[in-house]
Design a protein around this nucleic acid. Sequence first.
DNA 1: GACAAGAAACCGTCCAGACGGTATGTTTAA
DNA 2: TTAAACATACCGTCTGGACGGTTTCTTGTC
Lengths: 187, 187
Amino acid sequence: MSEAHHRKKQPEAVRQQLLEVAARLSRESGLGNITLDAVSRAAGVSKGGLLHHFPNKLSLLDGLFDDLVGRLDRAIEAEMLNDPVPHGRFTRAYLRVCFNPAGGIEDDEDWKALTIAQLAEPHLRERWRQWVEDRNAEHVGTDSSVDAELVRFAVDGLWLADLLSSHSMDPERRHALAERLVQLSRS
Amino acid sequence: MSEAHHRKKQPEAVRQQLLEVAARLSRESGLGNITLDAVSRAAGVSKGGLLHHFPNKLSLLDGLFDDLVGRLDRAIEAEMLNDPVPHGRFTRAYLRVCFNPAGGIEDDEDWKALTIAQLAEPHLRERWRQWVEDRNAEHVGTDSSVDAELVRFAVDGLWLADLLSSHSMDPERRHALAERLVQLSRS
DNA sequence: GACAAGAAACCGTCCAGACGGTATGTTTAA
DNA sequence: TTAAACATACCGTCTGGACGGTTTCTTGTC
């Protein structure tokens, strides 16, 4: 008859907590190396409790993906609402969300490392592929120019560099680069 | 008294075979999920044999990294020898090596997936970070302009897109993009 | 509003298999 | 003969997850 057993039930909070802990642990030791034991322990939940929310390990990883993509989608959508120019709108929103340190998405460092970890898992890489494909198809009318594509590639590259580099880039240079990319997205 | 025991000894070939198999398996199931058993079995070597070449799992992963970076360095260096213009030379070589399907590096698909997998492993991510930093420092005199940096970012982004997309990009568009990037590297 | 009754949200235990690694033997090459 | 290049057997630990309980929440009924 443990104390934990008697605490108030708060399924959504526990679920979120599990996802956050899993994300943090995967940053420290790699997504493939996290264990249900470690996640549940660090989240203050029994393994049975974890397995109640995510019936197996794969579904936990999928949950991580869904959560991340959901936040990303919402952040992009919010940015797009502030942009009156249709042409290249999605590309600019993508740029701003990925570019800004903590712009639109919380846990900036965390979610980058998490994304990379997901790209390494073949199953989740396929889901990312699908996401990119869907986004491109969705905005094919406004964001399919060569320039727009180039901008998005550069954003991805800088995103990668951000993840790798220990010290962030020179802010001024960073800003200049961002301006230039925005300009390219309008051409 | 197994057959394998009696075959001719060829340590270097076995070592290379182990690395290749490990790379292939990591593409199929993720780098963190490969096992010594699976690698040794698929390579036609006993686990003891594998552990003779790589005393533990970490050293196998490091070996994978060393091998990949070595090939990358050699391919880049070869490209640089063909380029008479000093300014932006490293960036163009980087571009050509990463851009060309199977240009300079064999097993094109394999090594891309492997790189991503390595970026997911914190320990190897640090080693990649060091590599990038060293290359940038080495060519700081010729390849540190904003444009050069932008080109390298775009290359990384396209490299990522290549990895994700099932069907490769339209060759014509790809070529146009490459031309443009080369041009940018000269400015 | 009371109250049964089922569903949902957990907990604690246990286990079969997998995994990394060791210890030791055997064969080949120098 | 010696060292390197393998093979075989085995061990301790870890891990996913199945399972049966216990508590809280929700819902329908009166």
